[in-house]
Design a binder for these strands. Sequence first.
DNA 1: ATGTGTTCCTGTCCGC
DNA 2: TGCGGACAGGAACACA
Length: 283
Amino acid sequence: MPELPEVETVRRGIEPVTTGYVITAATFRRPDLRWPFPRDIDTRLVGRRIVSLRRRAKYILADLDNGDVLLLHLGMSGRILIGGTNPGRFTHDTGSLPQHNHVDLQLSSGATLTFNDPRRFGMVDLFAGSDEADHFLIRNLGPEPLGNDLSEEYLEHRLLGRKTSMKAFLLDQRNIAGLGNIYVCEVLWRAGISPRRRAGNIPKTKLPRIIPAIRDVLTEAIAAGGSSLRDYRQADGALGYFQHRFGVYDRADAPCSKPDCDGKIQRIVQSGRSTYYCSSCQR
DNA sequence: ATGTGTTCCTGTCCGC
DNA sequence: TGCGGACAGGAACACA
């Protein structure tokens, strides 16, 4: 699933055909994805103008002209694809199966947004903007990793006394919002910190490496259009290419590419999910 | 209060 | 070629 860089890439991809335009038709082909869609979501959307398109963590939020907010989350396998008005539609081969096209939004820009999600872990909701801060999916999110709220003081305080592993800590959206399995592995490799290390036991010398590693990885990944492994595509169907720059993710048995390190990348499982790291230079 | 395991769902790949 | 099992970018929830 898409993590922050992939979601941001999708947001940027659809912004030119959404912001400022009116939703002229909305088709929901099933009653739910991960959660039930709100009652009458289709009729509530039609006629509304999209005023702005934001990202919070891995959520895309569309502000509508009546004050409502449309929330989208891509889950593990979700995609948002831009089609034109002609039935031929997508400019690239999207690699997606049409039976998983669950939602279509027709816009006055002439574009059609299609939400495709084979595994259906994605989420769509529509609520009053005044309820956003209390929304059950938003209210517990930690600071944006690329924003000013993520500071070394915050991180140090948050890590204090935590017995969980660094991997689990960074994956927890309540601590920092937007990192997922790939980028947590990459961040810890760049920072030279073992994913197995207790969060409350980070050496003073290594603490200052964490936030720069997070910002560098995410910024580079966004610039590369995200990482395309299996499902993820940019909104026009194009592939991201950050996967070619992975230091550790999905690189089990490969030599570590850190200068002066002769270690080998290992794959271990932490709380049911793959972790990749170099046990030689990550301590 | 924290930390860990389970669950939702489909598709793909690998070994036999 | 078919079949079973492992695995996949997430995160809420139930339980220790």
